[in-house]
Write a protein that binds this DNA or RNA. Sequence first.
DNA 1: CACCATTTGTACGTATGTATC
DNA 2: TGATACATACGTACAAATGGT
Lengths: 81, 81
Amino acid sequence: MIDHDGPTPLYVQVADAIEARIQAGDLLPNRPIPSENQLVQEYGIVRGTARKSIQLLRERRLVVTVVGRGTYVATPTDDQA
Amino acid sequence: MIDHDGPTPLYVQVADAIEARIQAGDLLPNRPIPSENQLVQEYGIVRGTARKSIQLLRERRLVVTVVGRGTYVATPTDDQA
DNA sequence: CACCATTTGTACGTATGTATC
DNA sequence: TGATACATACGTACAAATGGT
């Protein structure tokens, strides 16, 4: 699923994969996405890379992060940034 | 100048310091800010921290980065993002 | 053209702090 | 108290882009 040798950065590939899961309805609004450590397990990446993926999703305004809780699929309400 | 023990994250302190230098006219529009390695030297931080500072300045739209060249103080023209 | 220095980009690994439950 | 999860900061290595020699 993730190409560790291709030209596309891993953190972009992972962010795209999560975005696809959101669009597909696999991950629902107000529900948590996999934790950083879970992403590490699922995609065979290191935690720093998982964090960069989540940050990219935040910049795309697809997720919101709550310290100590986790990262959640954004809702239309979250767009008031 | 930088408090390595205080509650404010180093990368925020460094970004604020650079922003102050921009506001003071020490760093001019279309002119480069110190490179990541120079920031490492000047502030006694690690490169990852310097990068986070620059990223924060990009989010503030105070600078623009060109791969292989460096990071430059933004001009009003750059605001067309 | 090859080569090199500089600079930013990506990715790995590790440790400690803070917040929530 | 402890487990979980994100935040910060350190350190290292190599890749890619740029510009000059």
